[in-house]
Structure formats: C-alpha cells, structure tokens
Design a protein around this nucleic acid. Structure first.
Length: 430
RNA sequence: AGAGAGAUGGCAGAGUGGUCGAAUGCGGCGGUCUUGAAAACCGUUGUAGGGUAACCUACCGGGGGUUCGAAUCCCUCUCUCUCUGCCA
C-alpha cells in the first residue's frame, strides 16, 4: 500500500508510476485520495477540538462532585450534551472518510522502479541475460508429459496425473518412485544452498488468515486465486512469501537484526481460476506444487543490492542444475500488483521448445511493509518502514519438466544432474 | 467437543468509575563512580493521527453500550491457558 503522505507530496510522480503500470484513470484515483486525506485531517482537527472541551468539562464535574457542589455539577452536566452530540457526528464522519480513503488506497498498485521498462505485455519485457547452451536432443525427443508415461518401470507413469485427478482433481499430480525422490532431493538441495547463502530456514503454516493475506497483498486483490476454507475462514497459501513475510507483521525490528533472511519450503496452492488453457499441459501449470522461497527484509538503502544478491543466488542454482535459462526484467504492464521491480527467471524446456518461468524475484520496497506495519528504529530513533523482497529459489515443477526434457538420452533414460545425485541416490531415471 | 479461568506497555505484573497513558520489578538507553567492567545510584524509555510549534487526540484483545467521565460496569465476538474427552 502506498503512503498517503507520499501521494500528497508526490502527485505527479505517483500518477506517472501508475501510468507505467497501466492503471486505469490514475489522475482521478490520486486526486480522490488527496481530497479524502484533506477531509480526514479537517474532520479530525474539529473532532479533537470538541473532545478536548468534553474532557475538560468531565474533569470539571469530577472536581465539583468531590467538593460536594452537587447543583453546579448538574448544571455542568447539562452543558456536555451538545458536545457529545457533535463529537458523535464528527466521529462517524471521520470514520467513514477513513474507510473510503483506505479502500481507495488499497486499490493502487505499487509504483514501478525507474529501471522498469515501459510496456504492456510479456513481449515488452527486457531480456537481461541468456545463459547455458540449449541441448541438442536425440532423435524422437519428447515433451515431459510424453516422457513420464514410459518412465518408472512397473510404476509408470512416474508422474501420474490421472491418479491425482481421481484423488483430488486435475492439476494435482502424484509423483511416484524416483520422481518423488527427485522432488525431495531438489527441496533439500535448494534449502541447503539457501542455508549456505545465509538464509535461516523456517517451517511455517500453509494455511493463513485474512490479515496475513492482506499484509502481503494477496487480499483483496487476488481473493479468487486462493483456495479458501469457509468453515474457519482460512486460505491455503499460494506461496510461502505470505506466512514467511507475515512473521514480521506489526513488528518494529532492531536495526542490528537487519537484514532478515529466511528460506522456507512449502507446497503452494493456486486455483488458477480462468487461466487453464488447452496449451497448459503436464507440469507447466498445477493447482498444487512445491517451492522453496527466499525472503529478505532490509533497510531501504540496501534493498536493491539485496535484490541483486537474490537474483545471483537463483542464477547460481540454475547453473548448478546445468539448465539453460534467461532473466527478464518485467515491464510495467507485466509485473505484479505489489512489486516495484521484478526479475523473472525462465528455464529452457527443450522438449516443448519454449521458456518456462521458474522463479520470480521482486523488491516490494515499502509497499508490503506499509500494510504489515513492519518497521525499524533508525539510529536517530525515528521509526521507518522497511523493504521486503522475495524470490523463488526455486519452484519445482517446471524445473523438473525441463530437467526431464533437456536431459533425455538416446536410450530413453533421463540423466540426473550431478549436483542432485548425492541427494537422491541415483544418476539415471529409466 | 464439555467445564472453568483469563486477555493491561519489550517481558512480568498491579490497578473494580474521575487526579490512569497507566504503580512496581526486569529489560533497554543515557549518565555518575571505575584503569575497564560489574554492582550501586541518578535520569530516561509505548504506538498512531493531527498541529510550524506549545500541545491536542486516540489506543489497556476486537466491536458495541451505560455514564458528565470507563483499563475498571454491561452486551457481544475472538483468542489464550488449565482440567476432561478425542487424536498424529
């Protein structure tokens, strides 16, 4: 959430940022907020004045009662009626203005960083880096949804979508044998790598309440994208970002505890309402998937350096997995609601001959922190909002897809990257 | 799920209608003393909104009510703890 004072002091800048993000009618929205803020302060000043009088009268009556001046006290009581009436009126006005201000404020996305390119769609993203040679596949190479059918021996298919469909629904696959083992190996590898990079591992709930959903910006913006348990009013997490970051909701951090670096493995759940298309096959898009997420909370002046470091960490993982990838700097129209700057990592999927997004690393600046009330005390004792960042490191399914496809051998087996062998205990899937 | 108890500042914990933003202890910060540290002593120490400022206002789990006046009384919701039950 953007800060009212910032909008008030930076009207043009705010509008320009919203335009870059393709927000409709930004001028009207910004001006309405500035107007509501003016009204709010005006009403509060009047309300405070009335309350000051009321408080004074109440004290006066208390004094008179003590002195036994009953009659005078009664007279004074009569005088409070008008004040009471007026304060009630102003209080209601103040509340409704604040409510409207809040609901307008919540609609605004974060402003993009100056380095964010102009553009509306994925076509306009900037290719920052492309690394690793695309493999030359053997004759008869296939996409992963075909490969899995023949893998796993008697257990085939090694990733069973039909079975998951029976148990739950489409988009909830069952991983069997070496596929299951490989999943666990990747999770352990990713967690270990993050540990080496200084991230503290945390295990967090995968159900969250509405306050947490609001804190990181999933609510109210993405209400329909999360699975919701109506009985207890809890949501299944779409990403570990939500519970991990919400650890620090309503917290004032000690300056020397910064930066905070957490890593968590969780399953993630996405309803993907409306985005299920015919071209979305196999592991490309799921309702449930596994992900290791890194989160950083740091001082404003350090956040872009942290973003760089997080990007490098993700890059390192892909290098170690020997997968070709590219890094995109997302344009204004393609980036997320809460983000100021996002790098998407896409892994090359040789069987499909297309890039698959496998990580998204973002700096949210103070946007989440403002909702979370996540702050720290500066050396001169001022309370200031922190910056929050997160990134996938990594999301498993598309890594697995490209691993299967890129590493398919002429004999139909799959080569496991060396770095995972100690974790899973085999170097080939047949 | 049943019965009972409770929710107060970073923590512990007092406060049952006015002088309470709130005693006291611990912790934190600053100082005195000391070669240094500890101890002791002195001072200081919540959050938010408004105001150029002096200062004003709100907040004692959330919401509502009674009253001139509520941390304190009433209603309601939520949560926590203890015991019983169930259970990985």
């Amino acid at each position: 959430m953007l800060q009212t004072t910032f909008i008030r002091d930076n009207r043009e800048l705010t509008i320009a940022g919203l335009i870059k993000k393709h927000y409709k009618d930004p001028e009207a929205a910004v001006d309405r907020i500035i107007e509501l803020d003016r009204l709010r302060r005006e009403t509060q000043q009047e309300l405070d004045a009335v309350l000051t009088q009321s408080n004074a009268k109440a004290k006066e009556i208390g004094g008179l009662m003590k002195e036994g001046k009953k009659a005078e006290a009664e007279t004074a009581k009569g005088e409070t009626a008008v004040l009471k009436e007026r304060s009630k009126e102003l209080d209601e006005q103040h509340k409704s203005i604040e409510e409207e201000l809040q609901s307008e404020l919540v609609k605004l996305p974060n402003l993009p960083h100056e380095s964010v390119p102009e553009g509306r769609t994925a076509e306009d993203n900037i290719n920052e880096l492309e690394q690793g040679a695309k493999p030359v596949l053997p004759e008869g190479a296939q996409p992963h949804w075909e490969l899995i059918k023949k893998l796993g021996g008697k257990q085939a298919p090694i990733i069973d979508f039909e079975l998951g469909n029976k148990i739950t629904a489409a988009g909830f696959p069952v991983y069997k044998g070496k596929a299951a083992r490989l999943q666990r190996a990747m999770i352990a590898f990713f967690l270990d790598e993050a540990g080496k990079a200084g991230y503290t591992e945390v295990q967090v709930p995968i159900l969250i309440n509405a306050d947490s959903g609001f804190g990181t910006g999933q609510l109210p913006d993405k209400e329909g994208q999360m699975y919701h348990d109506a009985a207890d009013d809890l949501y299944l997490i779409p990403t570990a970002e939500v519970p991990v970051t919400n650890q620090y909701r309503d917290v004032i951090v000690q300056e020397n505890d910064l930066p905070i670096k957490n890593v968590a493995y969780t399953p993630c759940f996405r309803r993907e309402a409306g985005s299920w298309g015919a071209h979305v096959r196999g592991l490309n898009r799921l309702h449930q998937f596994d992900k290791v997420e890194i989160v950083q909370i740091c001082k404003p002046e350090d956040s872009y350096q942290a973003l760089e470091a997080m990007s490098d960490h993700v890059k390192g993982l892909l290098e170690k997995l020997e997968l070709p990838f590219r890094i995109l700097r997302l344009c204004g129209g393609d980036m997320g609601f809460t983000s100021a700057l996002t790098f998407d990592f896409e892994v090359w999927s040789a069987g499909q001959e297309r890039w698959l997004e496998c990580s998204s690393v973002s700096n949210f600046e103070t946007y989440q922190a403002n909702r979370l009330k996540l702050r720290y005390k500066t050396a001169d004792k001022k309370t200031q909002l922190l910056h929050t960042l997160n990134g996938s490191a990594l999301a498993l399914p598309r890594i697995l897809a490209s691993l299967l496809e890129n590493n398919q051998q002429a004999d139909g087996t799959i080569r496991v990257p060396a770095v995972l062998v100690p974790y899973c205990g085999f170097d080939t899937i047949e």
